[in-house]
Every structure is written in structure tokens, then in C-alpha cells.
Amino acid sequence: MQEKPNDHVQALNYCAHAIEDLRETESMFRSLAPKSAVALHRIIDMLQSSVKFILPNCCNLVDPAEMRQAHLDLVRLPFPCIAFEAPWDKEEDGPEHIGDFKQTPATKRIALCWEALPEFEILPGLNSEVLNAFPEGGVFILPIYWGQNRKNGP
């Protein structure tokens, strides 16, 4: 199998670029959609304070053919709020268009993950609503991604 440039772990700084772009979006939303601006501000805070992890290309940590329930049973967040950064360079591309919309690959990806704790709540009451439905708890995951046509971030 031929090595690709993103097969080796390297400093990505995706979170820093995402924060820059999200700040611009937040400022545009302040007067038009103030509640959305508050949620974006909270996401920015969480991205800044998260512990960052860089994953290999396409998050290939375990061969999908070898994935077992035992792997999933061990999955826990090492810190209450983390951000996984991963390049996503696949040999096969998806469709160029879906309907009238041109598609571009999302080659830069972040998974912002946090435990259902009061200090990590994007919208007031969201954690308790989710915990009411799932009392055993769990982890929130917010995907942030963008393609090569964007300069920095999402």
C-alpha cells in the first residue's frame, strides 16, 4: 500500500483555524441570531479549553475488520472536554454534485467531545434534557469540518 502525505501524524492546528472562523461567524450572528451567537461563543470556549489530540488520516486507529465490542467498551474520554483533529484524505471521492449543489471533500475534521457536565453545555438545559432521555449518561460529539476550498476553517 502506497503511503499518503497524511499517513504520518503532524501538527494540524485545525482548532486554532476553526476558532478564527467561528469567531467571524459569531460576530455576524450577534444581531441576526443572538441565541446562535451564544451557542457559537460556547463552542469557541470549549474548543479553546479542550485537550487536543491529533489522529492519523481518516482516524485509522483500529482496522475496521478487526473492530470488536471490546474496543467500544473501552472507549472513555481521557479528559472532560477534548478535540480530535484528523486529516481526511481518501483515495475515492464522493459524488461531485448532489442535486444542484457542488460537493467538495471535507479534508480537515475536528470532533469536539465532552461529558455531560454543567461546565460543558452549549445551550442552557441541553445536558439535562439529554440525560433525562439517557440517564446512563454518555458523551456529546460535535463534528466540525471543512474542505480545501476554505482558507482556514469551517
Rank of each mutant, 00 (worst) to 15 (best):
residue 1 M to K: 15
residue 1 M to R: 15
residue 2 Q to I: 13
residue 3 E to Y: 08
residue 5 P to W: 04
residue 7 D to M: 07
residue 7 D to E: 09
residue 10 Q to S: 13
residue 11 A to S: 13
residue 11 A to H: 14
residue 12 L to M: 06
residue 15 C to K: 15
residue 15 C to N: 12
residue 17 H to W: 10
residue 18 A to I: 04
residue 23 R to F: 14
residue 26 E to N: 07
residue 27 S to C: 10
residue 28 M to K: 12
residue 29 F to S: 11
residue 30 R to T: 12
residue 30 R to F: 10
residue 31 S to N: 15
residue 31 S to I: 09
residue 31 S to P: 01
residue 32 L to C: 10
residue 32 L to P: 04
residue 35 K to W: 05
residue 37 A to I: 00
residue 37 A to H: 08
residue 37 A to Q: 05
residue 38 V to T: 14
residue 38 V to L: 11
residue 39 A to E: 06
residue 40 L to K: 01
residue 41 H to A: 13
residue 41 H to T: 08
residue 42 R to Y: 02
residue 42 R to S: 09
residue 42 R to C: 07
residue 43 I to W: 01
residue 44 I to C: 01
residue 48 Q to A: 05
residue 49 S to Y: 01
residue 53 F to T: 02
residue 53 F to H: 10
residue 56 P to F: 03
residue 58 C to M: 14
residue 60 N to Q: 08
residue 60 N to C: 09
residue 61 L to H: 02
residue 62 V to W: 02
residue 64 P to R: 05
residue 65 A to D: 14
residue 65 A to T: 11
residue 66 E to A: 13
residue 66 E to R: 13
residue 67 M to W: 11
residue 69 Q to L: 10
residue 70 A to T: 12
residue 72 L to F: 15
residue 75 V to K: 07
residue 75 V to P: 04
residue 77 L to P: 02
residue 80 P to F: 00
residue 81 C to W: 01
residue 85 E to T: 01
residue 89 D to I: 06
residue 89 D to M: 07
residue 91 E to D: 13
residue 92 E to Q: 09
residue 95 P to M: 00
residue 95 P to R: 00
residue 95 P to F: 00
residue 102 K to G: 02
residue 102 K to W: 02
residue 103 Q to E: 03
residue 103 Q to Y: 00
residue 104 T to K: 03
residue 106 A to G: 11
residue 108 K to N: 11
residue 110 I to N: 06
residue 111 A to D: 10
residue 112 L to R: 03
residue 112 L to D: 04
residue 113 C to M: 15
residue 115 E to Y: 05
residue 116 A to P: 14
residue 116 A to D: 06
residue 119 E to D: 10
residue 119 E to K: 10
residue 123 L to E: 11
residue 124 P to Q: 04
residue 124 P to N: 10
residue 127 N to Y: 02
residue 127 N to I: 04
residue 128 S to P: 05
residue 129 E to F: 11
residue 131 L to C: 09
residue 131 L to R: 08
residue 132 N to V: 12
residue 134 F to Q: 12
residue 135 P to F: 07
residue 137 G to W: 08
residue 140 F to S: 12
residue 140 F to G: 01
residue 141 I to H: 03
residue 141 I to C: 12
residue 142 L to E: 01
residue 144 I to H: 06
residue 145 Y to E: 14
residue 145 Y to R: 08
residue 147 G to C: 00
residue 148 Q to R: 09
residue 150 R to S: 15
residue 152 N to M: 10
